[in-house]
Design a protein around this nucleic acid. Structure first.
Lengths: 254, 254
DNA sequence: AAGTGGTCTAGACCACTTT
DNA sequence: AAGTGGTCTAGACCACTTC
């Protein structure tokens, strides 16, 4: 008998298996808990499959199936011969997982950041609703422009729960190299694992026109993103205004 | 010894396993071939796992792993207790796999179609390049408007290889109920399995403005899609012009 | 009862990386 | 040589559907 909640043939009682839950999914949940609690930090190696199998008193195959799903969800990364590692945003290849704006020609490269505002404000009703806060709760507001080859291309606004990002200042943002999600994960213990985006076409308002150096009324992409951490907890709101003169939003349908 | 190409310890020769290919991937390739050749038609049930295991002289677990990947790629659908079925576009739930335009409020429902043009023309250099044809090859050109609740929302142009869609006429398109991909698959034996989209913001030109009943210059989404069939063969070009007044392009980042 | 996919095990062995 | 993930097997049993 394994130590986890049995699915049938239990001690007694008419177990008509009202809610069957495979062992490997229970293992997966336990591993996810350890990831969330920070038992293994981003970038670190996790215990080997045989070690986890021993800890949970299940076969290696069952642990494998659990980790397979975690790898499919990009929570962990497997490297043959080396081990299984906690996924991290502080990596070159992770940068373009959430940045879907690609140059029409040439290879993608990293944008230059210019921060316009880093403020602590109070959540509007709309922001509070999407971040699952209360109206008036503290939020960090960030506004920045990203340029490729000196051409301003992205005007971005972010709203973050103030509670989670207490020490976040303009200085920290400016001095940090790499994607913001890397900073969030390493400095504030908040890891983005999933996001949804709603995309619309909008006309450049005076502010956007100024920052992106385009004429007022120019058609621009507007991407409203909600990012989630473990347990589908919303931890970021982001509105990106993209100039698609020399770039496009790339998507794979499958 | 299994009958498929051995990976090592072969009859003779210094096999330093220069190109290792797992058994289950070879099985997967064989099953894909059968799917492509039409041995089992879309919507039909395929042979059971044990039967396939017998046919290929491998264990059921190996067949399972092959089918697992095919299911992940949406080429087949597993139904516990029933069997494994060839995926088909002629299903309610499949409709919204490629249609990412969602209403800002309310539940998504099917659009009304109005066909503006169904022509056989010659491929321009650009169309030929993307469809991997030669300039001047025959292509089917389709132009249509899709409306939700009577509101014209999508202006779409399609280019299809003439060779693959010989009997395609306006009548066939009009009388067919359901998504176009269903027609392509059932009547022309061409099944879309994957697509890429590049999205930009554009200003409504006179033609788009007229069809979508918006003012000239209105910002609209422009989605350029290339669809692929088995073997990454391009089989459709589609340019969609979306009005995002009451809809948005929905995307999941993970 | 029979057939299907789904889970779980124990063990063997392979490929890859590091020591 | 030792440790890691990756493959493959054979068999038992479970959950679900159909007959």
């Amino acid at each position: 008998m394994n130590p986890l909640s049995p699915n049938s043939s239990d001690a007694a009682g008419t177990d008509a298996s009202p809610s069957f839950r495979p062992l490997y999914q229970q293992i997966k949940a336990l591993i996810t808990q350890s990831l969330q609690s920070g038992e293994w930090k981003p970038g670190e190696m996790m215990p080997s499959e045989v070690e986890l199998a021993g800890r949970f008193k299940v076969s290696q195959g069952t642990v494998r199936k659990a980790i397979d799903e975690l790898a499919a969800e990009n929570l962990v990364v497997r490297r043959q011969g080396k081990g299984t590692f906690v996924a991290t945003h502080a990596e070159e290849r992770a940068h373009f997982r959430f940045l879907r704006l690609m140059p029409d020609e040439g290879v993608p490269h990293h944008p230059d950041n210019r921060f316009i505002a880093v403020l602590r404000i109070r959540a509007t009703a709309e922001v509070a609703r999407l971040l699952e806060l209360k109206s008036g709760d503290a939020v960090v507001y960030i506004k920045r422009v990203q340029s490729f080859d000196g051409v301003p291309t992205i005007l971005e606004e972010l709203w973050l729960p103030g509670q989670l990002f207490k020490g976040l200042t303009a200085e920290r943002l400016v001095e940090y190299r790499g994607p913001m999600y890397g900073l969030f994960e390493s400095e504030f213990g908040t890891r983005m694992i999933r996001a949804t985006e709603k995309i619309r076409a909008v006309a450049a308002d005076p502010v956007a026109a100024e920052h992106l150096k385009v004429a007022e009324g120019t058609p621009l992409l507007c991407a409203d993103r909600v990012s989630f951490s473990y347990g589908d907890k919303p931890v970021e709101l982001r509105r990106g205004i993209y100039s698609t003169a020399r770039h496009h939003y790339q998507n794979e349908l499958s």
